[in-house]
Structures are given as structure tokens and as C-alpha cells.
Amino acid sequence: MAQEMLLSMPLHAITEIYGEAGLRDRFRLEIAALPDDDRGQLEDALELASRLHAEDRRVREPYLNHLLRVAIRILRYYGIRDVDVLTAALLHDAVEDHPAELAGLSADLSYKELTEAALAELGQRYSPRVAQLVGSVTNPEFDPGRDRHEQYRSHVVASLEHDPWARVIKVSDFTDNGVGVVHTTYDKARSSATKYRPLVPKLRELVARADTPLSPAAKDHILDQLDLAEERFAAILDG
């Protein structure tokens, strides 16, 4: 496959046709021009994400596909080359989903203890900033007596309010889940639309803020994607 073609393809098209191997190739092409040290850190982060999420699936695809799309989107469509942000993008679900494996500890410890240890491991392995970014997009332990989706949305709003760089990771994650909602089963799409739709207005407001570290073109692109996600949520929930 020609590199030019792979670089021009939408990410979900690569996923449908070439799967994980195609997304890995696209990621490799996207980081090729980065400094050697940055490239090495990203290759290490991808290997760590691959190991931690090896058995994880998103309905019908390896979970790693989602992580690759989130990182590639930040590179290609947001124009971000910040190695810590890209590392955190690849590992944004690692602490939430696999804290014990990441920290090398027993799963019998509390969620809080495991989360803190896993973030400390990321800080030591990469940088304190990577740990802080992953921490900002990691869900806390939810109260089983409250609505889980409502708690998730409250956490996202609070954590992104004062962390502009974490917004970059979250909007790419949200785009993959929101615009990509049509690439899954109906039951999963309806659940995702119910969870994510109320967040769209707040994400629009956060993206548009002056302190969000994105170019005007990237912000316009993201706002268009949020509009598309809202259209798809409406079609699923209101149609």
C-alpha cells in the first residue's frame, strides 16, 4: 500500500480495511519526522499500551485501535507534536483499566492505591507531566449509589476546567467515541450516545477557550466533529 494513500485515509477507513496493522503503519508514518528521543518514547508507550490492553476488545476490534486513533488524530488533525501529550494519549486508559498490571502490584489493593501507584509508575517511566495528563483523564472510583454516566460527565468537566492540555486528549478520545459511534452495534451506540451527548455543549465551550492550546484551524476542525457527533447522537436517540 502506498504511503501517500495511507496518510490520506480517514482513520476509521484504515481500521475497517487494514485493522490494527494499518493503524500501526499510519502511526509510524506520522511520527517519522519527530526527533529520535521523542520517537523512542512513543514507540515505548505504544509497546506498553499493547501489553496492557492485549486482551481488551471494543465490541469487534482490538482496544489498541482506539488508542492509536486518539494519538494519530492529535498528530495529524490537531497538529500537536508534544511528545508528553502523545504519550499520554496512547496510555490514557492504562491507569483506569489496568492499574495493578502497570504498577506491578496486587489487584487486592484499593482503587485509589492502585491508581496512585500506576500514575507514579508513568511519572518515573516517562515524566511527571505524562502522569499528570493521564491522571486528568482517568475516572475516579464512582459511587455505586449514583448514576454512573452523570458522575463520569461531572468528572470530565471538573478535570478539564483547569487542564488545557488534557482537553486535547479528551476531545480526541471523545471524537473517536462520538463520531465513531456509527462503527459499532446498535446497543453499544445507544449506550454511548446516552453517555456522551450531554457533554457536547461543554466540550464546545472548552475547545473554544483562548487557553486551549490548539490552532484556530484545529479548533474549527474539532467543533465540526462535535457537530457531527451531535447529529449522530440525535439520530440514535431521537430518530
Rank of each mutant, 00 (worst) to 15 (best):
R73I: 03
A118E: 13
V83R: 11
E96C: 03
D82T: 00
A107S: 15
L67Y: 12
A100M: 06
I72P: 02
E113G: 01
A94E: 02
D97H: 15
L105H: 06
D108W: 09
V95N: 12
D84R: 00
I72G: 07
G104C: 12
S106G: 12
L68N: 05
Y78R: 13
G104V: 06
H98G: 09
R76N: 00
S106F: 01
Y77V: 11
R69D: 08
S106N: 04
Y78F: 10
A88H: 09
E101F: 04
S106P: 06
L91F: 01
L75F: 03
V95W: 10
S106W: 06
Y78S: 12
V85F: 09
S106H: 04
G104Y: 12
Y111Q: 15
V85D: 13
G79F: 00
L102D: 13
D82Q: 01
H66T: 02
I74M: 02
A88D: 11
L91M: 02
R76T: 05
D84I: 01
A94T: 05
E96V: 01
L114W: 06
Y111R: 15
G104M: 14
D82I: 00
L86T: 04
A94Q: 05
L102C: 08
E96T: 00
L90V: 05
D82F: 00
E113W: 02
S106D: 15
A71F: 00
L91R: 02
R73E: 14
S110R: 10
L114T: 05
L67R: 14
I74S: 06
E116P: 01
E116A: 12
L102I: 09
A117N: 10
R73H: 11
T115P: 00
V85R: 10
V70I: 08
D82A: 02
R69V: 04
L102S: 10
R76S: 08
E113L: 00
Y78Q: 13
L105R: 09
H98K: 14
A100L: 01
R73D: 15
D84P: 02
S106V: 07
S106E: 14
E116H: 08
D93E: 14
R73G: 01
S110E: 13
K112T: 11
A89K: 04
L75R: 10
G104R: 13
D97V: 10
E96H: 06
K112W: 13
A117L: 11
R81F: 00
D93I: 02
L86K: 10
V83C: 11
G104K: 12
